[in-house]
Write a protein that binds this DNA or RNA. Structure first.
Lengths: 121, 121
DNA sequence: CAGGTCGTTCACATCTTCGTCACGACTCGA
DNA sequence: TCGAGTCGTGACGAAGATGTGAACGACCTG
């Protein structure tokens, strides 16, 4: 018999970042982040597809629940908002990486100064 | 000496804050807080779920024992009363954090210079 | 009865979020 | 190198959520 009644809350771990969608909460090194609904949902969907590139269209329909209109910049704007908060919480890390022409990818990478070789963007 | 009927009194510790529901008492750094019944119950239920977000609806049914009516602001008002007393007792700490659109979270955080991500209002 | 505490509810003030723009910086292929 | 398209970023107003002070009545207690 399968564990049909087992709640087993979903916990997404991406480096020092932890997302618990069911609790409407994300943590950085254990400390709670203050995220809005949209921000949290966006982070959640990215985290569920960590290390993979997710297109804007997919992200939009996942988070907003409808088709993205052409030239809609909502995803970009919310990626920006997330980046700001993640940067404030974990300055030594970078999480949301842009793939030009394709979309975004969530991956925990240490911010390495004094090395221009690896461009993260 | 063990007692078969020992209730094992519940003691909730949240930073410098201590709540003992069975004694109808809360302490800040050992000093007793003067809380009304509602205030204490609200603090208790929050403390039992420390570090997690609790929705207004859940808080209301936990503390008031009935379903919350739409647009009822009771929880907000009592959160306010608690904040005032906690602030008076422990000015260097912040306990009740608002999660916009979700509810409240009880976590002991030192009053720090503004940090966009963590600090709660 | 007089004064105080408590719980509830209102009304208004303030803050957040959200979607959208506009403009500038950036990327990449021709 | 250049140009078209893509992306980053700050700002805005409207709608809605939350913060806050106060009024009111019920309930003590002396």
């Amino acid at each position: 018999m399968a564990q049909a009644t087992k709640p087993l809350p979903e916990v997404l771990q991406v480096g020092p970042l932890q997302v618990v969608p069911d609790e409407h909460l994300a943590r950085a090194d254990g400390r709670a982040l203050m995220l809005s609904i949209r921000e949290l949902r966006l982070l959640t969907e990215l985290a569920r597809r960590a290390d993979r590139i997710v297109s804007r269209e997919d992200l939009f329909s996942l988070v907003w629940g409808r088709e993205m209109r052409a030239r809609d910049r909502s995803v970009d704007v919310y990626v920006r908002k997330l980046r700001v908060k993640l940067e404030a919480a974990l300055p030594a890390w970078r999480f949301i990486h842009t793939h030009f022409g394709f979309g975004y990818r969530l991956t925990a990478e240490r911010q390495q100064p004094s090395n221009g070789s690896f461009t993260t963007r």
